[in-house]
């Protein structure tokens, strides 16, 4: 690859990273940045067009759309990170155990992943949340239950191929225990690839979280949630299209950001391994 092209890629990568950090700061400081209280109802300001005081306009209860979008993004991102953290840890642990110990443990864990993969799309999440009851805690549980499978499958596969490598054999023959080999020698080697998966998944989780809210299974009104805002906006589509435009646009941009970031991370990793 030419030097110039490589430089462009570096710039893009750091640009994306900067954008991600900016969003992280924005949602962390939501209280300071949001111009209004996302829940404050003001019946004198119903369905106002975007203006200086309300940059994204107001909704049918006079609430500030911009503030609601900021808080909504905060809960989406926080939820996506929380679910990713849980499924990443759980999946990687189970996958490594499955790959390294083999036999019964492996069969058992892999049969569980087969079972979970037998449900298409949102079906398993809908069923779990549907039975346990709506609310963000149950959504987190449902998405973590379906989310760890991918990490487990990938880490298992990588452990299987690493297990026979020279350096692992060397570590074993120099007396390292199983736990030590897994944590010190195997984990650092598979971490990067799992991180790429995690980055891709964050965008997907944000969409799923919004989708479940639209189904009435996630966050409940009046919580500021991007999916809920979209589903509430439908009633006022003719009168106040801005209610639909901004939450969707923000969700779209953030999802795209994470998927671009995932792409860049993957390319960088491939370059490193091919060098």
């Amino acid at each position: 690859m030419s030097e110039k092209r490589k430089n462009v890629q570096e710039i893009i990568f750091y640009g994306l990273l900067a954008a991600t950090i900016l969003i992280a700061i924005m949602v962390a400081l939501a209280n300071q940045i949001a111009p209004h209280d996302p829940l404050a109802v003001d019946y004198s300001m119903i369905l106002q067009k975007p203006s200086a005081a309300y940059p994204f306009g107001t909704d049918n209860m006079g609430r500030c759309v911009l503030s609601r979008v900021i808080y909504g993004l905060r809960s989406s991102v926080a939820m996506a990170l929380l679910i990713t953290l849980i499924s990443f840890t759980m999946g990687t642990f189970l996958g490594m155990v499955s790959g390294y110990y083999g036999r019964v443990v492996d069969t058992l864990i892999m049969r569980i992943t087969d079972t979970l993969l037998a449900f298409p799309g949102l079906v398993i999440c809908i069923a779990i949340v549907g039975i346990m009851g709506a609310g963000w805690k149950n959504v987190v549980i449902a998405l973590a239950i379906s989310g760890w499978v991918e990490y487990a499958r990938v880490s298992r596969g990588m452990v299987l191929s690493l297990r026979e490598k020279e350096f692992i054999k060397a570590a074993r023959s120099s007396g390292c225990g199983r736990v030590r080999i897994m944590i010190v020698h195997i984990l650092p080697n598979i971490f990067q690839q799992l991180l790429v998966i995690a980055t891709f998944n964050i965008g997907h989780l944000i969409l799923t979280f919004a989708g479940l809210a639209i189904l009435g299974l996630g966050e409940q009104p009046p919580a500021p949630e991007l999916g809920l805002m979209l589903s509430e906006s439908k009633q006022f589509l003719q009168l106040a299209p801005w209610l639909m435009v901004y939450p969707g646009l923000v969700m779209f941009l953030v999802v795209m950001l994470f998927s671009l970031l995932g792409d860049c991370l993957r390319d960088r990793m491939n370059q490193k391994t091919s060098q």
Partner: peptide
């Protein structure tokens, strides 16, 4: 990256 429910509303 488009949320399909947003595209549908548009």
């Amino acid at each position: 990256s488009l949320p399909e429910f947003w595209l549908a509303l548009i």
